[in-house]
Amino acid sequence: MIPAEFDYVAPTTVDDAVRALADAGDEAKILAGGQSLIPVLRMRLAAPTKLIDLGKVTELQGVREDGGALVIGAMTTHYDVVRDPLIAEHAKLIGMATSTVADPQVRHRGTFGGSLAHADPAGDLAAPALALDVEMVVHGMDGRRTIPASEFFVDYFTTALRPGELLTEVRVPKYTGWHAHYEKFNRVAQAWSIVGVAAAVQVEGHTITQARVGLTNMSSVPVRASGVERALVGQEATPEAIKAAAQHAVEGTMPVADGNADAAYREHLAKVLTSRAVTAACG
C-alpha cells in the first residue's frame, strides 16, 4: 500500500526543525526512524500533510556525558543505543530493553526519542525511562523545557509534548554499578510486549539498597511499580523476598484486555515477571 501524498522537509538543525514544525501546523508529523510511522502511513491510518524528517539533524544523534547524567540524542538509533559503551556503563537497563525492540532491521532505523514520543503502551523503552527517572528535553518556538518522565506519558500514544514541540534529548541520571534486567513477555519474537518489566537494583552485600521498577503495557501509560520498589529496599535478595515484593506490581495498574491477554492474566504476569526481572537483575 502507498501512503497518501504529503510534503517533506529534512531540516539539518533543531532550530530549523522547530521552525518547520511551527510553519506546518497541526497536520504535520515528525519523522524520526519511521518504523511505526511509515507503516501507519502505508495503511493510510494517518495522512499528515507534511513530514518533518529529523534524519539529517546530526546534533540529535549520539550519546554523551553531561556531569552526572547521560544525554541520549532523540535520533540515536536503537542499534547505537545497544552498542553504546556509556549506556552499558551507566544505564544498562536502557540498553537491555532496547535490545528487545522489534528486530535487527528495525533497530537500525528506529530511534530512542521516536519510540518514547510514539508512546505505545506496549513499547519497551518507556518503562525503563520511567523507572530511571529520565528527563525529556523538548524544544519549541518558546524555547527549551524539560519534562520528567513521570509527566511525559499521558495516555495511549499521547505525551505531554505540546503542539509545535519536539523531543530532542533524553537526560538519564547515571546508574553506575546498578544491576538491571528487562523481562519481556510476548508470544513470538517480533511481537510487542504483552507485559514487560524493567528492573534496576543496587545490591550491597546481599541486601537490595535501591530499586527501580517500571512496567510495560500494564496501563495506557508505563507504570512505575513504586510499591515493589519500597518493598524491595532493605530486603535480602532472596527469591522469597523478591517474590513477596513483586506482589505489589499490580498497584496502580489498569491493564486492558486485548487479543493476547485479559486483565487478570496481565496482573498475574506483572507479578511473576517482576519477580523474575528483579531476580535476574540481582544476578
Binding site: L31, I38, L51, D53, H108
Partner: peptide, 19 residues
C-alpha cells in the same frame, strides 16, 4: 524487502526514498 542502506540492513518498505 530487506536491503542494506549505508551498510546496515533495513526494511525498504519502511524507508522513504527521499530518506
Amino acid at each position: 524487502c530487506t536491503v542494506h542502506l549505508d551498510g546496515h540492513s533495513v526494511k525498504s518498505c519502511s524507508v522513504l526514498a527521499v530518506q
